[in-house]
């Protein structure tokens, strides 16, 4: 039978060498909340597991020149407890918080959620909306790429075999900026998103949107960054007309499938509903109006 090896390297170089040198399938383990399930079901049969959690800097949050840098393997529970991130990026924090149970929060990471490359991943629309970049390391060195360039299809990423994400960099936040994330699920917890929506906005002193990024999950093979939706918001306050247009462009952007979690028709309608609701929360937050969590 195939034997499965395990390594927990303590440096990026060692990790990259292990990944590059593996004859068979090698998988990076951070939280393992997807990987272990896929191994157990037989969908994935790796020969090597490289546990990256002992690499310095891969767990933790720091600020550099006003920008937050989140270690790729930082568990959700650590991100949620970080006051600075909660203030600057409440949408990203609440999106990560929505992944799985409390138990899963003790393990799950942004990198795992992104590299699992599920179109329904909760933190990914928020990362896209945030305009985050990923610092990727590999045999050819480091590269920094926008997160939206990483997932290429369900379960597929643009990372080479010997590459993994070391950390995420969030842009410096201008004044009157905020974000929000909502997903729709049939229950109140424990489900995979039927539709997810993340929006990040910057407003001027009059509440007019000057910058926006809108992202939708579970409505296409990958999480979408919807430029048309951002265009609807930019230059406007969130009046009824803007909300109606946002709903329409969000729906128009959807290319969903019908599966056990939702139908094409339902997902499309809900994308519009969520876009409106998320925009309202993000605008409120950017205007300094405190708004509750998604649940």
């Amino acid at each position: 039978m195939t034997s499965l090896s395990y390594a927990a390297p303590t440096s990026v170089d060692d990790a990259v060498k292990l990944l590059a040198g593996s004859a068979g399938l090698a998988k990076v383990l951070s939280g393992g909340t997807d990987l272990l399930v896929q191994m157990r079901s037989g969908r994935l049969k790796p020969e090597l597991i490289v546990d990256t959690k002992k690499i310095p800097g891969i767990i933790g949050i720091r600020e550099e020149n006003g920008a937050f840098i989140i270690g790729a393997g930082t568990p959700g529970a650590v991100v949620e407890a970080h006051a600075g991130l909660n203030a600057a990026w409440p949408g990203l924090v609440e999106a990560l918080d929505l992944i799985g149970s409390t138990q899963v929060q003790g393990r799950c990471s942004l990198a795992g959620n992104l590299c699992n490359a599920s179109p329904a991943a909760d933190s990914v629309p928020a990362l896209f909306a945030a305009g985050a970049t990923a610092i990727i390391v590999g045999s050819k060195g480091r590269r920094e790429v926008p997160v939206e360039q990483i997932p290429t299809g369900p379960g597929r990423t643009s990372l080479a075999k010997d590459e993994f994400i070391l950390e995420f960099k969030l842009p410096v936040r201008p004044a009157r900026s905020s974000d929000a994330y909502l997903r729709f699920i049939p229950r109140t917890e424990m489900d995979i998103a039927v539709v997810g929506c993340g929006i990040s906005v910057t407003l001027d002193a009059n509440g007019v949107c000057t910058a926006a990024r809108v992202s939708l999950g579970a409505v296409a093979p990958t999480v979408l960054l919807v430029q048309e939706a951002a265009d609807v918001l930019i230059g406007h306050t969130l009046d009824a007309d803007t909300l109606a247009k946002l709903d329409a462009v969000a729906q128009a952007a959807c290319k969903p499938i019908t599966d056990k979690r939702g139908t094409i028709e339902y997902r499309t309608k809900i994308a519009g509903v969520l876009a409106r609701r998320v925009a309202a929360i993000a605008f409120d937050r950017a205007n300094g109006i405190k708004n509750g969590k998604a649940h």
Binding site: Y6, L29, G32, L36, I49, D51, A77, Q103, V104, R107
Partner: peptide
């Protein structure tokens, strides 16, 4: 940290 022990490897 609360975790599911089925989602963590013994070696970890």
């Amino acid at each position: 940290r609360l975790v599911c022990s089925c989602l963590m490897l013994g070696v970890e």
